[in-house]
Design a protein around this nucleic acid. Structure first.
Lengths: 127, 127
DNA sequence: CGGGATCCAATTTGATACTG
DNA sequence: CAGTATCAAATTGGATCCCG
């Protein structure tokens, strides 16, 4: 049930999803906020209200949606405590933990590319 | 000029783009077909018609668009030969080559997760 | 507290036809 | 050969209000 494209019209793309593990992976990470959330949860387990405060610029709806798909994709674990008031905690799964070193490298790469892109802008702007 | 979100309305998200190298990287790779193209071009330099044949399921418009943004993002290099008939070749840049080992790991991770997801589906279906 | 539901805007992707 | 242009559909993101 981790397939997000089940009732989609992109039937042709199923070849792609099915055939390309890389695309599969990127689709799990490609949401606008998922990586930020992943990064935050890597530090420590957090409850919903903490995440909400942390990402005050994300609407609640999007936060909820992203958390839900990440849970479905097996990236995070959601624990509900039967208390009053209710408490819900989110933490990374082992799968997400395995991802950390890879994402770290990707982050370094992104940093490098960003600097290059900025340099080029700085050089071409004075013209 | 490698910033794809220049006239976007996601002004708040600029904090995110600016602050998160990881998100920056994922944005460069997040298109529907970019990774497939990257994978193919990793093998060898290819011309437009070859790519078109290779990805017969991608419309020409999307192929062109993705190639263009990938070129702007410094992932691929586009070379036009002033011949008749015209010839255009696409190849990976050094930046993209540096990405290869990282993407390889990510691909392995994706493969693993996909198998797990399929197992779970297989187990829960008989119910 | 931790969301869900509804409605709408922005973005991405696609089909088809056309061009230097 | 290597693309553009136009129009339409699908997907994603956001604002606001509501609920147990």
């Amino acid at each position: 049930m981790a397939n997000r494209k089940q009732n989609s019209t992109y039937s042709r793309n199923e070849k792609c999803i099915t055939g390309c593990d890389l695309t599969y992976a990127i689709y799990m990470l490609g949401g606008r906020w998922k990586l930020l959330i992943l990064d935050k949860l890597a530090e420590r387990k957090m409850r919903y209200s903490e995440l909400k405060k942390e990402f005050s610029y994300i609407t609640e709806r999007m936060l909820t949606l992203q958390l839900k798909t990440m849970e479905q994709d097996g990236l995070i674990k959601r624990t509900v405590y039967a208390e009053v008031p209710p408490r819900v905690e989110y933490e990374l799964t082992d799968a997400a933990r395995e991802l950390e070193p890879i994402l770290s490298q990707l982050s370094d790469w992104g940093n490098k590319q960003r600097k290059i892109a900025q340099q080029e802008t700085a050089v071409s702007s004075p013209m």
